[in-house]
Design a protein around this nucleic acid. Sequence first.
DNA 1: CATGAATGAGCCTTCATTCAT
DNA 2: TATGAATGAAGGCTCATTCAT
Lengths: 212, 212, 212, 212
Amino acid sequence: METGGPKFRRRKADRPAEIVEAALAVFAEKGFAAAKLDDIAARAGVSKGAVYLYFETKEDIFRAVVDQALAPNITAVRAMIAAHPGPLADLLRGVAAHLGHVIETTPIGGVLKMVVGEARNFPEIARVWHDDLVVHALGAMTGAITAAQARGEVKPGDPRAFALQTVAPVLMAVLWRETFVPVGAEPFDVPALLRQHVETLLTGLLLEDARP
Amino acid sequence: METGGPKFRRRKADRPAEIVEAALAVFAEKGFAAAKLDDIAARAGVSKGAVYLYFETKEDIFRAVVDQALAPNITAVRAMIAAHPGPLADLLRGVAAHLGHVIETTPIGGVLKMVVGEARNFPEIARVWHDDLVVHALGAMTGAITAAQARGEVKPGDPRAFALQTVAPVLMAVLWRETFVPVGAEPFDVPALLRQHVETLLTGLLLEDARP
Amino acid sequence: METGGPKFRRRKADRPAEIVEAALAVFAEKGFAAAKLDDIAARAGVSKGAVYLYFETKEDIFRAVVDQALAPNITAVRAMIAAHPGPLADLLRGVAAHLGHVIETTPIGGVLKMVVGEARNFPEIARVWHDDLVVHALGAMTGAITAAQARGEVKPGDPRAFALQTVAPVLMAVLWRETFVPVGAEPFDVPALLRQHVETLLTGLLLEDARP
Amino acid sequence: METGGPKFRRRKADRPAEIVEAALAVFAEKGFAAAKLDDIAARAGVSKGAVYLYFETKEDIFRAVVDQALAPNITAVRAMIAAHPGPLADLLRGVAAHLGHVIETTPIGGVLKMVVGEARNFPEIARVWHDDLVVHALGAMTGAITAAQARGEVKPGDPRAFALQTVAPVLMAVLWRETFVPVGAEPFDVPALLRQHVETLLTGLLLEDARP
DNA sequence: CATGAATGAGCCTTCATTCAT
DNA sequence: TATGAATGAAGGCTCATTCAT
């Protein structure tokens, strides 16, 4: 039981956040099962034992990571919807700008990868993300599109499918960056991509003369 | 001690394929690290030792799974491109129909999830998928779009971004099904989704009168 | 994952018994919590992993150890009772001889120590021993004593207390051997002790002239 | 930051005793290895660190617990012996009454369980109990019996075995209470049991007419 | 070829012990 | 003194891999 070296570096209260941050990085890199507590602890600058002062199990850490990434987006979605009551184009541009920013400034990409990758092992996480975030976001977009259809602004068609179409390139951009850029793929300029996507979505790829 | 043999004796030659098929199912469900050799062997109907007659390590099996799912798509992509020299709309409709079919009839969704989820742990897999499949597919689509722009068929804009936009809803559909449908999300009708996507992409969401 | 050395020494089927035997020795020496799986495995001549081919957890091994020691005694108790319908003295002498033999030829002493020591941590074990062995043994003895009282053979008094008194020196002998002999205490000649105990119990310590 | 002190501030001098008392309870319940310092500290109402102000190690606490329970009995044994120079019956009745009282009013039962259970892990504890208590008690009883035999009061026979027989039911009563009563066994009335034991031991189970 | 019992390195988790405050 | 956050060695358990049969 002999030990050595300096023991106490910082104080509690910020520890959980530090551990979650370190865990996010490790989980995003390795996935849940391949992530080692040693790595998480080392990255957080604490001993392995210290992690267990704040979390019961490795799974708890994982849930904390995912929850922490989820929370701010839930409120952001609500705010976004309320902020654009006008023409659909305004909403889409606002959403694209916001998503572009979120993607570039938060680790949401890595978390999303984890949610997708571990959905079968942690169904409750997939459920929470679906019920608390995705359903609301997609529902709001679907509602806005339905309203725009009623206003004679948008073409007929399944509004839920339109909504999915709207956000799909965001996913592409995220997964592209997480998956292929590290092995040499040419990156995308996400904000520019999303801007172009919105305009194309609104008025179509084809020039007037080429339309059927 | 079996004397009267079974009617249909499993032929040895198929063993590797059977193992890969079983491994695909297990890996897609659990991810690489959480998948157990026992499960793969049991699902393949062989002993754990038999797996090692055909594969050196668990990683080898994983690579075989991913490679096997990759191969047919590489040739399909080349064929698809050659098949639609005409208007872009024809190509997009053809691609959408093909992808819709592939998604619904092959386990590509689960494999894609694996590739994304394990890209950091198996960079060479991500690299192979990128170099042998994605780059070609995206490049071909980009080329087709560039050509259509040159023909005065498609609007100006970054053709690579247009290409990404084109296939993005396929990803959405796949991940939606793999991630959220198992926890109760409403599924999408993928072929219908893709059909609507193509038409919308071509001519835009907005009605003539609502355009700027 | 490189290994070395000879792998397979014996075949299954006797493995569980070998492990239980080894575990009995280790548990009896260390107690449940302080016993190490490594020690049990090493003593059984197998690897740590092999133990888990036959038992789910350390607790399972413990239960198997205790159960295995319990079983033969249950049947022995029934046989003992049936074998002595006559005068109480015959029964007592038979029981004493049997117990003396069991104590000297089986590890029941160590197991008893474990049952007592872990009764609070494994209440179900204490319960099984009580319900399946102790209650029957004590009940049978109580019944025999009650019958002897009815026959005018034995003095009035609480027959259950008499029964307890009957077997008490057995416990003393066991615990003496398990606890104090290893640290230098003078051992008892258990069969002789029990013989003297029975005769004394039947007719008393005091000589005729010294009785009140 | 406490300003108005509590009415009864815990006096420092009692801390060690409080810790030992708490430790006794925890050790008696869990055994040495399974007892946690956290539990002991919590039960004593102090912090874990405070325990280490008074004891070097967990083993030290254990020894203190056992020693504390041992000490008063050593002196009691000496007093008991000196107090009954007369007929053996008087001594036995006195001893029985005393033991019955000790068993019912002190935690000696739990301590005894610990001594037995940990004798192999802490041989020096078993040795101290044997050398300082058991040998003296048993020796004194053996001496008294030998003297009674010399006086023509007691039958011939191994006086040490007689002595063991004398105290055996005390053990039975203790272990019964510690082991089986918590899982539903019918308790014994210990004082009554010991009273009956002494009388039976003196004059025998059998009625005059039934004797050989 | 095929089996599956056996191996042992590795990892999550616990907890006695330490020490900055 | 007293606290309790922090440490890290240790141990239960898992599972990829091996090999006698």
